[in-house]
Amino acid sequence: DVAEQLTPVLLDGLREESLQLVSKLKDSSSSCAVDVSTVWWEAAGCRELCVVTACESSVSLWKPLASDHWGKIYTWQVGEIPVIQIVPLPDTCNLVCIALGDLEIGEIRLLLYSSENDLFKQSLVKTGNIKAVLGIKDRRLVSSSRTVQEQQVDIVSLSEMGRCKDGQTLMPPEETVLAFAEVEGVRDALVGTTAVNSIVVWSVNLKTGQLLKKMHVGYSYPASICHRAYSDSGLLFVVLSHPHAKESESCGNPAFRVVAFNPKTARSTGVMFSSLPPGHAGRQGDVKDASAAAVLTSGAIAVWDLLLGQCTALLPPDPEGGWALARWATTSACLLAGQRDGTVCLYQY
C-alpha cells in the first residue's frame, strides 16, 4: 500500500516506476537545446561515458563527477550554421559527429580532441543537400544527398583522429533515402527507407555497394522511418516509426511497427504494433534494442517495449516545461530526456 501511494499514477494510468531518475544536468548557457547523446571519452587514461548536449550554436561535452553531478569539459562553438542533430558513432571514443543546417542538413562535422597539439578541434566531413546520415560500425558514416539531377549514397571512413580516410559509393535507388539502419546479425548489410515507403538493402563491404533488393512497406503509413534492422531465421525484421500516420479506429495511432520481410521474395508481414497512448499525438522517436521512446506533442515522453507492443512508461511534462528530446544512451538502458532550456535528465529504464 505504501509503495502504491508513493508511485505516482501518470497520464492514462501508466506508471513511472520503470524509469528511475539517476541524475540531472543543466546547461545554464544553453539558449535552445536541439539534441542530446552520449559518447565514450578518454582523458588521462580514464575512459568514461560522457553526455553531449547541443544547442543551435554550440555543442558541450559533460563528464560524470561524484554524487551524480556532471561537469562541463569543453564547448565547441560551431558558427553561423545551426546544429540540428548529434549523430552517434558506435564503438568510437573521443569523436562527436554533428549535422548542421537550416531545414535540411547542409553540413556534417566531427568534433574531437587532438592529442598531437593538445587542442579541441572540429573538422568538416561533408557538405551538400543531405537527407539522412547514420554512424555505422568501423567508424563510418553513411549519408544520402541530392543534387538536382541525382541522388548520392556514400560511406566515409574516419580515422581515430577524425580524418576522412576512404570513401565508398552505394548504388542509389530512384527515390530519396530518408533513413538508414545497419542490419544486426548480417555483416555488411545496410537498409534504408525511402520517401515512397520502400525498404532498400545494400551490401556495404569494401568492394561493392550493390543495391540488393527493394521491397515495398505498404501504403498505409506514408514516409515510414527505419530505426533498427536485424536478421533472424532467414527474415529481415525492421523497426519502423510512422511520424505522419493518421489515427484510425482499428489501429489507434501507430507509433512503431516491427515488420518482417523475406528478402528473397520481397513479401512482408507486420509482427508487432505499438500505438500512442490514447489521446496523445505527435512523436519524435528513438529506438535502442527492443525499447522505443518518443516525445509527444503534449510534452510527455512515452516509452514502449517493442516486443510486447505496449507503452510501458509515460513521463509527464515537467512542471518547468515539456520534454523536447528523448534519446537512448549508447550503453545500458539509460534514457536521456531533455528540455528546451538545456536541462537533461538521465533515467535508468
Partner: peptide, 23 residues
C-alpha cells in the same frame, strides 16, 4: 510468420542476393 505467407525463406539470403546482384 509462415512460409506460405512470405514465400520460401533462406537463412543465407544476404549471400544469395549478393551473388545474384549485378556488380
Amino acid at each position: 510468420c509462415s512460409e506460405s505467407d512470405l514465400g520460401p525463406i533462406s537463412l543465407n539470403w544476404f549471400e544469395e542476393l549478393s551473388a545474384e546482384a549485378p556488380p
